[in-house]
């Protein structure tokens, strides 16, 4: 059985040779380890941010400000919301108005929402979703979808407003407000329970916004790649039997109405928001 090759290998495998071989393995592994960890994604973005800061500095104060900027993991610690948001490690310019025209991820946060919802108090993920602890783009953004921590995109982001704000505070005409009215309009409580009212023919919707994609029934025939919560809800509203034969009435909703209703569904979560972070007028949620 023992051919010349194995015999030669056996002769070669003396302790000194094996020690040298082990040493080579160590070196490869330790070198690769350093290389893998050497260039985190956020480092490149922060370097770019620092470069722009320095280039734009025109007085002594801003030069000092630029000089003080340290490239390091940045995080917002939010014990009250039980989270740590490290989004600002890449989105480092969200609060700096000078970066309005900068490319993502270092651009200024659009709109004036951050003046009311200061990042130090609210962080990012309470509105945007995603995984705040992660420091890589994919993991932080919950990619690839479907994922357990998907980010809310576009109009669906409004769903987060309803986590704190009561029905009477919804901006008139917003997706969220339209969705809430459609919920009444279609008489959803005829079959579904929400908080303390409604019926139990269909699933209770009180915490539907906290359900993950894998808690929805996708049927046995669905072959599509989009398995996000948003896609399930929208398809289900437009055609209740999209995934499996459902007893729910088909309301022939338009795309727009279906999506508004999805936004409202996403606002129905069981997230615990401490009172001191609640809107001053107080919620009207039961």
């Amino acid at each position: 059985m023992r051919g010349p090759l194995t015999a030669r290998l056996r002769d070669l495998a003396t302790p000194p040779v094996l020690i040298a071989f082990g040493g080579v393995l160590w070196m490869i592994a330790l070198l690769a380890m350093v290389l893998v960890d050497a260039n985190p994604e956020w480092e490149a973005h922060q370097s770019e941010y620092r470069k722009r800061l320095a280039a734009a500095a025109d007085d002594a104060a801003s030069v000092r400000h630029a000089g003080r900027f340290k490239v390091q993991v940045k995080q917002i610690d939010l014990p009250a919301l039980e989270r740590v948001d490290r989004c600002v490690s890449c989105h480092v310019g969200i609060e700096d108005p000078a970066f309005a025209d900068a490319p993502q991820p270092i651009a200024t946060h659009p709109g004036d929402l951050l003046t009311i919802h200061t990042p130090e108090r609210f962080g990012c993920t309470i509105c945007h979703g995603g995984n705040g602890r992660a420091t890589s783009r994919e993991d932080a953004h919950g990619l690839p979808e479907p994922s357990l921590n998907p980010m809310l995109r576009g109009e669906f982001l409004q769903g987060s407003c309803g986590k704190c704000h009561g029905d009477d505070e919804f901006v008139a005409g917003s997706r969220l407000e339209v969705g809430r009215r459609l919920f009444d309009h279609y008489g959803c409580r005829t079959c579904h329970r929400l908080y303390q009212s409604g019926n139990t023919a269909g699933p209770d919707l009180t915490k539907v916004g906290s359900k993950k994609f894998d808690a929805f029934f996708w049927g046995n025939d669905y072959r599509g790649t989009d398995r996000s919560v948003v896609y399930w809800l929208e398809s289900h509203f437009k055609n209740p039997s999209a995934f499996y034969p459902s007893t729910m009435l088909n309301f022939k909703m338009t795309d727009e109405n279906a999506r508004a209703l999805v936004v409202y569904m996403l606002s129905l979560t069981d997230e615990r928001i401490p009172d001191r972070l609640q809107p001053s007028r107080g919620p009207t949620k039961p």
Partner: peptide, 13 residues
């Protein structure tokens, strides 16, 4: 020592 080097090297990889 040889066994330890190879095992640790393999484990690191």
């Amino acid at each position: 020592a040889a066994a330890a080097m190879v095992v640790i090297g393999g484990l690191l990889l």
